[in-house]
Structure formats: structure tokens, C-alpha cells
């Protein structure tokens, strides 16, 4: 590995860790309220994810830029003002250019202000790191969160409606309705109960995978120790 690659790797790590290893929803369990409320369809989840990512990128960049002049006594109010500004901007843009998405997400666009992930990344990362790193962190966490809510929405829409509909909320996509399992749809999955159930099952699956991985690693470690002991004998 050359010197340039060594220098690059922490930045790639900053970008990637928010997607899987430190996924804000599946690992740190932050932002669960909109994850349950806006995941009745893939389209609204994707829309919410993109708006959320825009706010996260904007606030991370600005907070990183202001980090050296922000007095520690007022850093939280400053972060909130910055985040609220980006949420207001996102709200106005979506109302103007994506009115269907705006009316579908309703109050949950405004509620991005109080999303723990945005304030969490501002406090834990952007306030301590440079602009480019903060940008990468925001991209990583934004993709991670969007991916997580789209996964939940995939199962909820499929089980709740028996298929998928596109082009209804994000009107720039051509309208497609594909519901082959309509007769077997369980409408409970489009309700909050379904959201909790799907989130619970996905979290259980991820926990199972993590535990299995740890068990294998522990077993390998144990084996390696046993072998080295035998060799020593």
C-alpha cells in the first residue's frame, strides 16, 4: 500500500461506517420516529431519506465551518438554528417542486429539526472535524439512513399492499403500479403496528448476524490459541 492510499483510507472509512457499521437507524437506533411514520411506501421513504440527507449535508458543512468561532456556551442553540434553517429550506423547496411528497410527508419534514441523527452528527463529528470530512460523514450517514428506511418500506409496502407503486409521490418518476399479491395483502403492515413489527424483525435479523459473526470470530480465536499452545508443547 503506498502513502497516498494510507492517507485516503480514513476518509473512505468516514464515508462507509455510517452506511453499515454505524448505521444510524439499525445500529445506533436513532431517528426511529420518522422511520416508522414515513415507511408505508418505498417512494415516501426514499423522499424522506433524500430530504434528510440534504439537511444533514448542509448542517454538517456549516457547523464544521463555524466550529472555530462557535463559543462552547451556545453551541447547541447555534446547531439548532443551522439545522432549522436547512429544514425550512428543504420544506420550501419540496413544497414548490415536489408538492405531492410535501403533502405526503406532512409534519415529518419539519420534524427533521428534532431528528437525533442530525444533532448527533453535528455534536459528535462536524464540530470536531474539517469541512470535507464532515461532508463525507453526512453522505455516509445520509445514505445509511435512507437505505435503512427504504428496506423497512420495501417489506411494509410489499406485505401491506401486495406490491409496489411508483410515480405517485415522486411525480418525476413514470407511474407504475405493480401489485401481484394484492389479494394476499395484510393492511396491518401499512399501519404503525406493521412499522414496529418490520423494524423489530430487521433488527433481530441483524443482531443474529452480528452474534453469529462474533461467535465464529471467538471460535477462530480459541482455535488459534489452542493450536499455538499445542505447537509450544
Amino acid at each position: 500500500m503506498n502513502e497516498k492510499q494510507v492517507e485516503k483510507s480514513p476518509r473512505i472509512l468516514t464515508l462507509v461506517k455510517g452506511i453499515i457499521k454505524e448505521n444510524p437507524l439499525f445500529v445506533t437506533l436513532l431517528g426511529t420516529c420518522p422511520a416508522l411514520a414515513t415507511t408505508t411506501s418505498i417512494e415516501s421513504a426514499l423522499g424522506m431519506g433524500l430530504l434528510f440527507m440534504f439537511v444533514l449535508i448542509g448542517s454538517n458543512i456549516v457547523i464544521s465551518l463555524l466550529r472555530k468561532i462557535t463559543p462552547s456556551e451556545v453551541k447547541i442553540p447555534v446547531y439548532i438554528v443551522v439545522i432549522a434553517t436547512f429544514v425550512t429550506i428543504v420544506k420550501m423547496f419540496s413544497q414548490a417542486y415536489l408538492p405531492e411528497l410535501y403533502s405526503k410527508l406532512g409534519v415529518f419534514i419539519s420534524l427533521i429539526v428534532v431528528n437525533c441523527i442530525v444533532l448527533g452528527r453535528a455534536e459528535a463529528f462536524a464540530s470536531k472535524n474539517g469541512v470535507f470530512d464532515s461532508f463525507l460523514d453526512a453522505i455516509g450517514n445520509g445514505i445509511g439512513y435512507t437505505l435503512a428506511i427504504v428496506i423497512i418500506a420495501f417489506f411494509r409496502e410489499l406485505l401491506g399492499t401486495g406490491g409496489f407503486t411508483f410515480g405517485k409521490t415522486l411525480t418525476f418518476i413514470p407511474y407504475i403500479k405493480f401489485t401481484p399479491l394484492k389479494d394476499y395483502a395484510i393492511s396491518m403492515f401499512t399501519m404503525p403496528t406493521g412499522g414496529f413489527l418490520v423494524l423489530g424483525v430487521v433488527l433481530a435479523f441483524l443482531a443474529y448476524r452480528t452474534n453469529k459473526k462474533q461467535e465464529i470470530e471467538a471460535f477462530k480465536e480459541k482455535e488459534a490459541r489452542r493450536l499455538s499452545k499445542e505447537e509450544a508443547k
Binding site: 463555524l66 462557535t70 451556545v74 447555534v78 438554528v81 443551522v82 432549522a84 434553517t85
Partner: peptide, 9 residues
């Protein structure tokens, strides 16, 4: 700082 942030926002 607060004036600056609020003004810019």
C-alpha cells in the same frame, strides 16, 4: 456569533 448565525440563516 449568535447575531451572525441568525442573520445568515
Amino acid at each position: 456569533v449568535l447575531m451572525l448565525v441568525a442573520g445568515l440563516s
